[in-house]
């Protein structure tokens, strides 16, 4: 059975094409591109909210996009127990919708951060099944507001429910940091309670092809398909 997926495009999305290529190349199935003003969503296995600066991010990052027409359908899709992945701005949108806990505030150094980062999985879910424990993945980040924050109560919930999917870690060599943006407990990605919705700051769609510096981003789609 072929794997079907869709990518939502908001005005200001700039990783929508990258996400479409990522899905086309790795799932080999049908991939739809959906404009934010649409009011219906095809029945697909996975929806990606891509990175970018939706609506210029002039309010809070992701705040405007979370009120788009298509979002009702996205929420239905998630409530239907199908997969929803928010990458970077997509993660920010998911927290604004309320599908994910916490918020993404400005990076610790108050500067945009565009570089390779290293992550490993914390708790297992269907998005990271194919990743071994303690396996270090190299995936680029590119964000200004990627510093994950939540209160202690929420943090405990996230831990108790095993909702932390990825955490930043140190790479193998001397020149990298452990927690690049100051996220609480170095959190790089979290899921909802049912673990069918994942938000992550690193961009797996920029690390999957043989010409990319790393192909570790494949593992997420491979996990979902397996």
């Amino acid at each position: 059975m072929s794997f079907k997926s869709a990518v939502i495009t908001f005005p200001g999305s700039n990783c929508d094409r990258d996400a479409l290529c990522y899905l086309k190349d790795l799932t080999k199935g049908e991939v739809h591109n959906i404009w934010h003003e649409e009011t219906s969503l095809p029945k697909v296995d996975l929806v990606i909210l891509p990175g970018g600066f939706s609506f210029g991010d002039y309010l809070r990052s992701g705040a405007m996009a979370s009120k788009s027409k298509i979002i009702n359908e996205v929420v239905k899709h998630a409530n239907d127990n199908r997969y929803l992945l928010g990458i970077c701005n997509g993660f920010q949108i998911l927290t604004e919708i309320g599908l994910l806990e916490g918020a993404l505030i400005r990076n610790k150094k108050l500067k945009f951060l565009g570089k390779n980062c290293f992550i490993k999985k914390k708790f297992q879910n269907n998005f990271n099944l194919s990743i071994k424990d303690n396996q270090v993945l190299q995936i680029p980040v590119a964000h200004n507001e990627g510093n994950f924050y939540c209160d202690t109560e929420t943090l405990n919930l996230l831990k108790n429910n095993e909702q932390i999917a990825f955490e930043y870690c140190k790479g193998e060599f001397s020149n990298n940091e452990e927690n690049i943006n100051g996220s609480i407990e170095a959190i790089a990605g979290i899921t909802n309670k049912k673990k069918n919705v994942l938000g992550m700051m690193p961009h797996p769609e920029r690390a999957y092809s043989d010409f990319h510096q790393s192909q570790d981003g494949r593992l997420i789609i491979e996990s979902l398909i397996s």
Binding site: C15, R17, F112, G114, K115, A142, H203, R206, S209, H212
Partner: peptide, 27 residues
């Protein structure tokens, strides 16, 4: 890197050589 890390050099998914190398390369 302090300069280059403030730039997104991998968006569009076609970057082969990022800033800091002798030349930047995209596919």
């Amino acid at each position: 890197s302090w300069v280059f890390d403030q730039y997104d050099s991998t968006v569009m998914g076609d970057t082969i050589r990022e800033p800091g190398q002798s030349s930047g390369i995209v596919k």
